[in-house]
Design a protein around this nucleic acid. Structure first.
Lengths: 168, 168
DNA sequence: TAATATTTTCAAAAATATTTGAAAATTCAA
DNA sequence: TTGAATTTTCAAATATTTTTGAAAATATTA
């Protein structure tokens, strides 16, 4: 397969993949494009390569920056803005984990704390089932939170070498 | 807060949460409803509680069953079908991980294997950047695959106790 | 078997999410 | 400053996903 075709496949798949994870297709495609670009790109470059409008590029690049996955780059005497993405996949994964944890896991745990205060007699099967579920989610969520904190601080080396230990 | 209000909040939040993860709102809501129901429910129960159509319940219940998160239950002399969900959150998480791994991670790794065969001179910066990205994803993905296999086989106890060890 | 209850299907409608493109705002060079 | 280049915004258009509801299929009982 030639490079151009391979790139296209990579970008399309990354986009489809993102879709499954609640990330919009274009944002994922722009990310893919930046990942495989040796040099920073302008918004016009992205418009052209992905065949999308200026507004679309602009909004999704901003979103990528919000997620900490891309950044603006000032180039010597150039007037236009350039953008790059973090290339180290381990760092990319950690950054996504960090953001989703903050945006989703933490609010969810707060909700569980609140729902844990629900009034009612625990002898009532309905109250019991509800409380058990809330407690179960809270307990596991707290552990996941700590585990992900460890992951975020870890080096790739740690992760890779621990794969073996985990099987013991 | 009263039980009914708490249930509503739980169901709505679980639905919104699912949405962020590429799972449709209704499927997540049905799952939430089954999680907190001490007894199995019929499709009519779900239609009424969630205010959705029969077709919608039917399709999403089937989807939950596909994901291994719910199952049909035959009740003594009843004519209608009943449904329940796995209540153990650790098992629920493992099941979701198992399915997503199979549906998404594995196909992605296959694609990386294929893209790794791309023709081209590695001295070309564009070829190099592409190949480095593909290799990076492949390498990390393979490790994630193994780690998740370990997780899927693990007991909750293992997970919970390992949180501490991971910090060392 | 026929009558009734229940479940499933799926085309069309509705809801939601994404994208466009042109106007407004901003930045920069002279 | 001014004016051209560039970026940003956002209402409207488009695309995608989800939901409905009624007809068809299936299952159950008498």
């Amino acid at each position: 397969m030639k490079l151009e075709e391979a790139k296209q496949q990579f970008i399309n798949s990354w986009g489809a993949f993102g879709t499954n994870w609640g990330i919009n297709r274009t944002m994922a495609q722009i990310h893919a494009l930046l990942l495989i670009s040796p040099d920073p790109l302008t918004q016009d470059d992205m418009m052209e390569t992905l065949n999308i409008s200026r507004g679309n590029v602009n909004m999704n690049v901003r979103e990528l920056i919000d997620w900490g996955l891309a950044e603006r780059v000032i180039l010597n005497g150039e007037r236009k803005e350039y953008f790059t993405a973090e290339k180290d996949i381990w760092k990319v994964v950690k950054q996504i984990v960090k953001e989703r944890k903050k945006r989703e896991l933490e609010p969810m745990l707060q909700l569980m704390d609140k729902l844990e205060q629900t009034e009612g007699d625990k002898k009532d099967r309905h109250v019991k089932a509800f409380m058990d579920t809330v407690e179960g989610i809270k307990k596991l969520g707290k552990h996941a939170d700590k585990t992900l904190d460890a992951l975020i601080k870890a080096e790739e080396h740690w992760f890779v070498s621990n794969v073996v230990k985990m099987f013991k």
